[in-house]
Design a protein around this nucleic acid. Structure first.
Lengths: 249, 249
DNA sequence: TAGTGGTCTAGACCACTAG
DNA sequence: TAGTGGTCTAGACCACTAT
């Protein structure tokens, strides 16, 4: 008896064998029902299995195609280089993508004073619920939604600065923090991966079978104080992260 | 008309609302078909949707449960500290998990001389296809499969060392490389996330809806030569990665 | 308009678990 | 043995695309 697994396995093998390139139209469901002598739902389940693996994608009214793999953008440590954002620099993300020949833009979703969520409070070193300033923004690369990023700041550091406004000015919020007397010294990045919630899936227009990377960045001043915590949710198929460090003692 | 999306949305809301804790048994499919007045397959599709999000999991003969989220293991840079593996140390992974109060073990899947795959050759700085030594191993944490890790070495560095054997001895392969005249200096880690292939899914016994993290580690000697490339595939729900670094100039 | 996939039904048979 | 989910069928109706 032919089952959906077998059909999925054979389709997977032919795709991975290179017979169908990115965006190539696969045999239609009704073709396959005839070829295997099974019901339509059985073939569909095979396709759904591959979709959950991120291998294929259905296009309304056309059929199933091999899902194109976007070339991922590299997030290296050098994107934080002081020389890029001090002086006349641009915000980090925009500057960094421009260097890679990609267009990028961002939209502010919210600017507000909110109680610090627990993971943020912990990293800022304040009691949970302490009022903090949040900038919630959505960034786009080549007009595809790329990440949802929420940056949290202690209130005293953003008081009277352009961090509270939509446009933070040349060099972005890093430059504004330094103008406000904070010398930025160190970055901590924590990375995890998971499947998106349904809200994120819509907001990032993720095809089924695309995980997200959760990046939590904590920025420290020279005194060791945490001055910013950014929580970002990033489409995994558009990103790789790159770190270099000496072997610790 | 009640569709599978609506049923999925309502189930998701009650789960996220905390009504059902980890491993709690959800209402059965036949309960829900009665409650919503729909066919069995419709309810099943709702559950399948949530399974792909990693929220629920079916248990044969029992029903659908809320999927427990394993507490992830933290991979910090300090796991590479020289003091941990020089002298009488243990291999890095085993030592590191022991510090976190977890049992770990590893099984060697293959020890062989193979042509370097392209990504490995590129990082080792050799032409693709150059013969290299590979150690393929599977690691387990608390007896759950945790990662598939393949380490590649230039042949001249493993000649006559215990890196070619199943047991590399105290301090693991890092210690053996240093004995062989390489002073280890720097680590590069590249991280990406994706859905597992079907092979990985079986090998790591991943529940549906669990992504994997691809970690590519390159180890450099003091002269700048790449002396090891490790390609690891890790269950994402068991891992977070943690980096700290000074803001570059 | 013909062909594509998306959703849903009502019922069948299976393997597995629990009492 | 009764209840659970897993798979499959044959057919229905829908929205969408291409021509």
């Amino acid at each position: 008896m032919v089952g959906y697994r077998q059909i999925a396995d054979e389709l997977r093998a032919t795709i991975e064998g290179g017979e169908y390139g990115p965006r190539a139209l696969l045999p239609s469901v009704s073709d396959l029902t005839k070829r295997y002598g099974v019901a339509k739902e059985t073939v569909r389940q095979a396709f759904m299995t591959l979709a959950a693996e991120g291998l294929v994608q259905s296009i309304s009214g056309r059929g199933w195609i091999v899902r194109p793999r976007p070339r991922p953008r590299r997030h290296g440590m050098e994107r934080y280089s002081r020389s890029r954002w001090s002086g006349e620099g641009q915000p980090i993300l925009i500057a960094e993508t421009a260097r890679q020949g990609l267009s990028a833009r961002q939209e502010i979703r919210e600017l507000a004073e909110v109680p610090a969520p627990e993971p943020v409070a912990e990293r800022l070193g304040v009691p949970p619920g302490t009022a903090v300033w949040v900038r919630r923004r959505t960034t786009f690369i080549e007009d595809r939604t790329h990440q949802l990023a929420d940056s949290y700041y202690p209130l005293d550091l953003v008081e009277g600065t352009r961090i509270r406004r939509e446009h933070t000015g040349p060099g972005g919020s890093f430059a504004r923090l330094e103008e406000n007397g904070v010398h930025l010294a160190e970055i901590r990045e924590e990375i995890a991966a998971r499947m998106p919630t349904s809200v994120e899936s819509v907001a990032l227009s993720l095809p089924p079978g695309t995980p997200v990377v959760e990046l939590t960045r904590t920025t420290f001043g020279a005194t060791g104080r945490a001055v910013e915590v950014m929580c970002a949710v990033i489409a995994a198929d558009m990103s790789t992260f790159d770190y270099r460090f000496p072997i610790p003692d």
